[in-house]
């Protein structure tokens, strides 16, 4: 049986379009609302869901996702709670891939094997651990692999040709290209450089390539979607959630509208190329 991630990227390829990977933080602004948000994402146009599990020290995160983690922790969020959240999402959706994203320590604390088993049971498909580079990920990667889950690796503008084979070794699922040097959400993506990077990566791997960090609007999402297999958007959605929650506005509707807007941009990006 091929994984949900592989199936989804195969379907996107067949449709001739890029996918939208939507990131939100578990327990932001609270458990039940975040479940409703995640449930609404596929209908709004998200092809893959990344669920952040809150961590006290998110060292690669910009202010938006830092604050989301603080809200999530305040609402009682944890890795265990995030796994339970994913399990509840899975009850109603068997096809949308779910990637857990966060930092190594909560996983280390749970133990790699226990985490892999629980993630599988919950219905997660992949895991991104920001501070677990290839040199340190063998135990976690093997544990996840044993359950048929992917440990998604990151490539960055500082990953040079000499290092790329280290990043690609043993990787499954997709490759996540972090398109800016910096924290999440802080810098706008350099679209041309990102597209050039995707072309470079494509020469070294057959894996689908998702591009993220710094994609905030329809224009940049569309531009990236012309080259990459998927576009990852996080801070822009998290900001909408934060604002709606603070204003007492309907959070699920607000974030769904933003997801729809960016999904449309991603879905139609290559059509524009064709008609142009």
């Amino acid at each position: 049986m091929t994984s949900r991630i592989d199936q989804r990227f195969a379907a996107l390829k067949a449709e001739g379009r890029a996918g939208l990977v939507a990131y939100v933080m578990a327990f932001d602004p609270d458990l039940e609302t975040s479940l409703e948000i995640i449930k609404a994402l596929p209908a709004a146009g998200a092809d893959v869901i990344e669920v952040g599990f809150p961590f006290s020290d998110p060292m690669a995160e910009g202010p938006s996702i830092q604050k989301a983690a603080e809200r999530g922790l305040k609402a009682g969020g944890s890795l265990k709670g995030t796994l339970d959240l994913v399990a509840r999402f899975r009850e109603a959706d068997q096809t949308t891939p779910v990637i857990l994203m966060g930092y190594a320590n909560p996983v280390e604390h749970m133990g790699a094997e226990a985490f892999a088993t629980r993630a599988k049971t919950a219905g997660a498909d992949g895991v991104i651990l920001v501070d677990l580079p290839p040199e340190e990920d063998l135990e976690t990667r093997s544990a996840l692999g044993g359950q048929g889950l992917s440990l998604i690796r990151l490539a960055t503008p500082t990953t040079d040709a000499a290092r790329l084979p280290v990043v690609l070794e043993g990787v499954t699922g997709f490759l996540y290209y972090v398109s800016v040097t910096g924290v999440t959400g802080a810098r706008a993506i350099g679209v041309d450089a990102a597209r050039a990077a995707v072309e470079r990566l494509k020469r070294s791997t057959d894996l689908p390539i998702a591009v993220g960090f710094g994609v905030r609007d329809a224009q940049s999402a569309s531009a990236v979607a012309r080259a990459a297999d998927a576009v990852v958007v996080g801070s822009a959605f998290v900001d909408v959630i934060a604002k709606a929650a603070a204003d007492g506005a309907p959070v699920v509707e607000a974030v769904s509208a933003k997801v729809s807007e960016l999904a449309r941009a991603v879905r139609t990006a290559r059509e524009q190329d064709k008609t142009a």
Binding site: D131, L132, P133, T156, T158, T159, R163, V178
Partner: peptide, 13 residues
């Protein structure tokens, strides 16, 4: 060990 994001990995090496 070296538990840093990929962006920093080439730098610490």
């Amino acid at each position: 060990g070296r538990f840093v994001p990929e962006t920093l990995m080439p730098l610490v090496l």
